[in-house]
Design a protein around this nucleic acid. Sequence first.
DNA 1: AAGACGAAAGTGGTTGA
DNA 2: TCAACAACTTTCGTCTT
Length: 313
Amino acid sequence: MDIEEDRVESVEHTVKCAECGSRNLERDFTRGELVCNECGLVLEDTEIDMGAEWRVFSPEHGDSLARTGAPSTYLLHDRGLSTSIDWQNRDYSGKRLSSTNRSQYHRMRKWQQRARVKNSFDRNLTQALPEIARIGENLGFAKGLTEETALVYRKALEKGLTRGRSIDALVAASIYLTCNRNKLGRTLDEVCGAAKVGRKELTKCYKILKHALGIRMDVNHPVDFVPSFISKLGLSSEVLSKTLDILESAEERELTHGKSPTGIAAAAIYIAANVIGSNRTQREIADASDVTEVTIRNRYKELASSLNIKMNK
DNA sequence: AAGACGAAAGTGGTTGA
DNA sequence: TCAACAACTTTCGTCTT
């Protein structure tokens, strides 16, 4: 192989183009852009290229360029780039060190520790980043998402947003922001639960964070929540696509305006499951979607009658 | 008995003066 | 800042299967 392929990757279909609504998007690592294939709109221009920075012309060439050590990560306060000194007083062959060397290493370790965590910024990160990793794991985040959250948090910290606020709340807000940015369809309560932060505190921090980082967020749409609810309910992909159909017609007729997206999503799933024949009770769907049975009832009646959908008994 | 239904009262967020 | 408002929740009694 003598010519490197373009560093381009198609994107999961949960993201929609803001201009034409198409889900046919591509991530271009070379230019650091998220681009719509239909209308060419650049949706994001700050993508982080997680790949190697070199070009490879043959397998041997690649090997010769490879470096040792773990990759740089936003999840460690020093990005994993610092040296650490082993606590065991032994040399490379396992022999014990002489007492002079031992005290020398002791001093080196002490200063290494002091140098690594040198200011309040780093101290804050050493507390916040493990928390991000923990909550991310709790919510089933992929590695990349945890990294993204860590990056958001770093930016928040740089802007001095932690002053007078709890680290936990800001961590939770970063997580919630990442969820929304990636259309993961996680409810506020799910994040509150995983982060053990109050609803009020989280929303407050979330607003501040969004404003400070200048991130514009389009409102959540019911479709964003569907995959997560469907999987919690153990429903088939047939029900999934039926639900998406229902939601599409509902959006067209503007039945979703001003209503909570989770309620609409839950109702659409209720109808779809019923039509397909894999019924779920209102209670089950209410539990999975964090809305009440009453809301599901109200929404599904509206949807079914407006869209002329006949339900099975 | 389980699930669905609907009324009534209460809650938290948004909007506009 | 406050009142008005729509959406949503909670609770509970009733109906249907």
